[in-house]
Simulated scan of single mutants.
Amino acid sequence: MNIRKAITSDFDKVWEIFSRVIKTGDTYVFHPNTPKKDLKKHWFADYMETYVLEEDGQILGTYIIKPNQIDLGNHIANCSYMVNPNAQGKGIGKKLCEHSLETAKENGFEGIQFNIVVSTNKIAVALWEKYGFEIIGTTPKGFRHAELGMVDTYIMYKNLKGEQ
């Protein structure tokens, strides 16, 4: 498996993953019917870096990294990750997380904050906790889950300052 910066020709393959992940309405805030043209602003904007994980010429996962805030808050990163549903359970989320932690450190970020992690997404919460992220806040009923209705969301944070 190889992780690299996404290039223009990856757009359609990333869209395939993005559209399948959001269609379920259970983990991301994007409307399940988000049009393809919006991928540029959500996953390929100028102020973020986009990465893909590929194996045997197939893109199996992707993530973005960007400053969580502008100006005086830009020392904290924000990341989002997506794995092709057909490739789940192969450790791709783990590899994307590890890569993003290294990328964040290389880019001088002092921490990473996830602004909205759906509380019912137990696999993601457990993965982030395994990598040292902590739940630092809860938004009651912060997400309209497609099947469960209103569910809580978490703000998760990992301090990178002082890590090698």
Rank of each mutant, 00 (worst) to 15 (best):
M1N: 08
N2R: 12
I3G: 00
R4Q: 10
R4W: 00
I7L: 15
S9L: 08
I17Q: 11
S19I: 03
R20I: 01
G25T: 00
P32M: 11
P32H: 04
N33A: 11
T34F: 09
P35K: 12
K37M: 11
K37D: 15
D38E: 14
L39A: 11
K40L: 15
K41H: 12
W43N: 06
A45T: 04
M48P: 04
Y51E: 04
Y51K: 02
V52P: 00
L53E: 09
E55P: 08
D56T: 03
D56R: 14
D56Q: 12
G57V: 08
T62Y: 14
T62K: 03
P67E: 07
L72I: 09
L72T: 09
H75W: 14
H75C: 14
I76F: 10
I76Q: 12
A77E: 02
C79L: 15
C79V: 15
S80Y: 08
S80E: 15
Y81C: 00
N86G: 02
A87D: 03
Q88A: 06
Q88P: 04
K90E: 10
I92V: 12
I92K: 04
G93H: 00
G93L: 09
G93I: 01
L96Q: 03
S100Y: 02
E102I: 08
E102D: 14
E102A: 08
T103D: 01
K105A: 11
N107M: 13
E110H: 11
E110Y: 09
E110A: 08
E110I: 09
G111Y: 04
G111K: 06
I112W: 03
I112K: 03
Q113I: 10
Q113F: 09
Q113Y: 08
F114C: 05
F114V: 05
F114M: 15
V117M: 03
V118T: 01
V118M: 01
T120C: 10
I123W: 02
I123T: 13
I123K: 15
L127H: 01
L127C: 06
W128K: 04
E129M: 07
K130N: 10
E134N: 15
I136G: 11
T138Y: 07
P140G: 06
G142R: 09
G142I: 05
R144V: 02
A146F: 07
L148I: 05
L148F: 06
M150A: 12
V151K: 04
D152G: 05
T153Q: 08
T153K: 03
Y154W: 07
Y154A: 05
I155M: 11
M156C: 02
M156K: 01
K158D: 05
N159H: 13
N159V: 06
N159E: 15
L160P: 05
L160I: 06
L160C: 03
K161I: 11
G162P: 02
G162H: 08
G162Q: 13
G162K: 09
G162F: 14
Q164P: 07
